[in-house]
Every structure is written in structure tokens, then in C-alpha cells.
Design a protein around this nucleic acid. Structure first.
Lengths: 252, 252
DNA sequence: CGTACTATTGAGCGCTCTCAAAACCAGTGG
DNA sequence: CCACTGGTTTTGAGAGCGCTCAATAGTACG
């Protein structure tokens, strides 16, 4: 996932415009003028590095964030130092939507690799969207899309076994990366096995064993964080919640 | 949960106003005038009965729905007739938010008991919220709240064991019912054990066994769908994701 | 009062976790 | 250049939670 890419300031400025565009505006047109108004409230931040926090749980909510390059994970810290990884966010994806309600962040967001992030002050964004109906509509859609995505994760965690979960995870990464113009079959995972397992509700060891198995079965070629998908069709079939041949549906 | 309540048309009309109010407007004030404008676009529907559908997956999205009385479940039908229960919706709660994005319902909504439902045509609602900034803000909050709730479910399905899941479910029901002025310790569950298990990612048998266990341990008194919580504090403690004494955290 | 459905209870097994240890990697300092 | 150290990943062996299968009881309804 573009680990050691050199990022010029100009690159960020331009691409940042693109990323807000692609997320909020592309699907249904804003006028070029409205796009400029939107873009004028977006702040650019200098590149963040592995381990940096966009925000921490409990902090006051001020802005939404959009990943320009790199990747970010969101997680809910629990009492005893444990955490639940809530999601991984790739370029073009938005972070912080869950904080609008409480006006305060319920989860934390940590950068997984050197990343460029755009910041959208929410108050100003709200004012803008009140005056641009199609922007309001896009925002509703964006929030709704997030809810739909969460529903998929509920299905994954509620019904799928370990094999199906990892396959679904890889397919999701593949799709999202290819949407950004990257290879759907050859990519780097910026998160650790530990984080993948946490996200999928599996133990690290189970994730590791599955990577090995998938490789043995010829579906993947795995070297550390570098993944090459050799048989996307089979992987997709496994991910598709279709219970494995020798399994019946669980509890339904 | 108010199973055999007689509902007059007038009751619905008045209470329907209340329910849209409490969900969308109460938290931050709309002017009484704006409230009337909102209320004027809300459709009342005659009472629906057990098994009726508000909508089915794949149908075109036109309206959001608010539960006035009764209860509704949303679920995602999967390929082979199986289904994943996505949520149970009690009075005052809104349904259909996930359909805004695709302009088409991804899940189905089925009435669990005789219920009164309000319908909010989304197009008209959007127009209205563009002209009432505080309504727009409330809608953003509502969508965000849903995302936050989903995150809680992810944590539940990803990290909690069967005991903690059922406890969390019961605490959730208790809280939501008491928010509507009903008893937090004495209520009827309108959904079957099967549906509870499906929702929580557990087998029916496991749910049944846990109800029995909770009762044996003196935390609950259970008679079919009638639940009385005898020790809310303990139940709350179990639900609070705190791993049981003899368990460590799972995979984090 | 039979039929169908839902709920309960019991017994056994399997998937995934836990525990443990080795292999591998990256960074640091001698 | 290499040993040392902390981290991540891999691999192995065993155990337990929760599922599956199966049978019984209880409930709703015609």
C-alpha cells in the first residue's frame, strides 16, 4: 500500500481536492462553483506518521477526516487496555462520522503508515450543506453508506467462520484498492496480523494459519505484508458468506 | 411489550407526532412552527400486524419509518433462505436509514407484533431539512447515532462471549424501554429465541440455556416472553464487556 | 385434541482460542 | 559486522465454548 511514497506538498493539495470530490461530490454533480466552496473549507495537514493519532476517544468533535494517501485504523479502547478495531480506512474514505451524535469522539483513530489526511471542520461543512441541497444529499448518502457497511460487518461477525471472514476481508481490501486505481490482486497490508484478527473477531494465530492455508491451496501468495491474490474467483466465492460445503448455516 | 393493546386512530395520530418529535426534534429545539411543517409531511398508516412487511430487500426506497407502538425487526435475507437479523426496533426508533445510499432497500423490515408505524417520505423530508438547519443537524446526528450503535454491536459480536451477549441484549432492551416510560425490569420480548440468537450470533439452544442459567442464578425471572430483571446491577456488569473472572480478553 | 411450532434439555463433537515455543525481522549499540 | 533486544509472525498441541443433532415438553390454533 504505497509504503514509502514521497509526498510533495503540491501533491497533497491537489489530491486532497480530488479525494473530497470523489467521496462527497462525484456521485451526483455539484456545480464547479460549489466544489470550490467545499474545497475552501478543507484544511490540509502535513503528512502524519505511523502511530500518530487523528483523534482519541473522548476528545471533542470538531472535524471529519478524509484519507488522501496511506491508511488509518479506528478502534474503541476498552477498559483493561484491550481494544476493538472498528475499521481500516483507505484513501478516499472518511473518518469520524460516529462522533457527530455525541459531539465527542467515541473511538480513536491511529495512522498505520505515513499518510496524508484532509480535515473538514464539521460546523462549517454543515453550514455549507444547508445551502447546497445536493451536498446535503451526498452527506446523507455517505452516512447511510456507512450504516450499510456496518450491517455487512454484523453479518460477517455473526454468521461467518474464520475462513470466510479472512476471505471477505481480503476481497474488501482488493475492491477498495482497485477503486482507487491500484491493483486488486497485488497489494501491501499496512496493518498487522494482530490488528486483522482483532478486526475480524479472530485470534492472531488463526489469521496466520489461514494465510498459510490459503497460500498452500494456491489462492494467495503471501510474503509478510505483501499479498498477491492468485485466484480471486475462489476467494470471492468463499467470502460470499456461502457456508463451506460441509457446513450448514449456523443459527438461522 | 404491549402485545394486545387496542389502538384508536386518534391515539396513533397524536402519538405519531410525539414519536417524530422525540426522535428528530426533542434533542435540540425546532420552533413549534417547524415542528408542524415536519409533522405535515408525516403519513400515518393503519396498524400493521405480526408478519407484515414495511419493505423488503431490493424495493425502491421512498420513505423512512418510525415505530410508534409495537416492534419491528430488520433482517438481511441471505442466499439459501437463511437470514441475519440486523436489529429490533422499538417505539421511537427509526428504520430504513441504510437505504438512503443505494436508493433501494438492502434489508427487509418485518413487524413482530401489532404495531403503529409512521412513514416519512424521504424526498420531502430532505427538502424540509435543507430549509431548517437544525433539522438537518438532527438528521446528521440520527445517522451518526446509528453508526455508533453499530460499532457497539461490532464489539459485542467480535469480543463478547455468549453470556455477555445475552446480558448486553437484555440491558439494551431495558434501557430503551425505560426511555419510553416503560418498566426497565419487567417487559415482554416480542421476538422469538430463534431471532434473539440470530441477532446475537448464537444458536437458539445457547440462548435458551442462558435464559435458564440467568434464572437459576437469580438474575432473571423468565416465563416465555415475559422477562423480569431481578438483579439489574449484575446483569449490567456482565454486559459491560468485562470478561468473566476466569477469562482473559480474546484476541486483542 | 391433533397439528405445527417454539422452547427446553441432554450428549457429543468441532472450530477456534489458549498456551507455549521457535523462527524471523528491524533496529541499536558494541 | 555481529550480538542483543523487542517485536511480529509462524507453528504445534491441547482444551473449552458453543454448535449440532436429537428427543422431549410446552404452547397456539383450528
Amino acid at each position: 500500500m504505497a509504503q514509502r511514497k514521497i509526498i510533495s506538498f503540491e501533491t497533497i493539495r491537489v489530491a486532497c481536492k480530488n479525494c473530497t470530490l470523489s467521496q462527497l461530490c462525484l456521485p451526483m454533480g455539484l456545480s464547479p462553483d460549489d466544489v470550490d466552496r467545499l474545497d475552501s473549507i478543507v484544511k490540509r495537514t502535513r503528512p502524519l506518521h505511523r502511530g500518530d493519532h487523528l483523534f482519541r476517544g473522548g476528545e471533542h468533535f470538531r472535524s471529519l477526516f478524509v484519507v488522501k494517501t496511506g491508511s488509518v485504523k479506528t478502534y474503541a479502547p476498552s477498559e483493561e487496555g484491550g481494544e476493538q478495531v472498528l475499521g481500516f480506512h483507505l484513501p478516499g474514505e472518511i473518518i469520524g462520522l460516529d462522533a457527530i451524535d455525541q459531539d465527542c469522539h467515541a473511538c480513536s483513530a491511529k495512522v498505520l503508515e505515513t499518510s496524508a489526511i484532509c480535515e473538514i471542520p464539521f460546523q462549517r461543512f454543515e453550514e455549507l450543506s444547508a445551502s447546497i441541497p445536493s451536498l446535503q444529499h451526498q452527506m446523507f448518502r455517505l452516512l447511510s453508506k456507512e450504516i450499510g457497511h456496518d450491517a455487512e460487518m454484523l453479518l460477517l461477525l455473526g454468521k461467518k467462520n474464520a475462513e470466510e471472514r479472512l476471505a471477505a476481508f481480503l476481497i474488501s481490501m482488493s475492491r477498495r484498492l482497485s477503486k482507487r486505481g491500484l491493483s486488486p490482486t497485488d497489494f501491501y497490508l499496512s496493518m498487522s496480523r494482530h490488528e486483522i484478527g482483532n478486526y475480524l473477531g479472530l485470534a492472531v494465530e488463526t489469521v496466520s494459519r489461514l494465510f498459510t492455508r490459503f497460500q498452500d491451496e494456491g489462492m494467495l501468495k503471501v510474503d509478510r505484508k505483501h499479498v498477491q491474490v492468485l485466484d480471486l474467483a475462489t476467494l470471492d466465492a468463499i467470502a460470499g458468506s456461502a457456508p463451506t460445503m460441509n457446513h450448514k448455516l449456523r443459527s438461522n
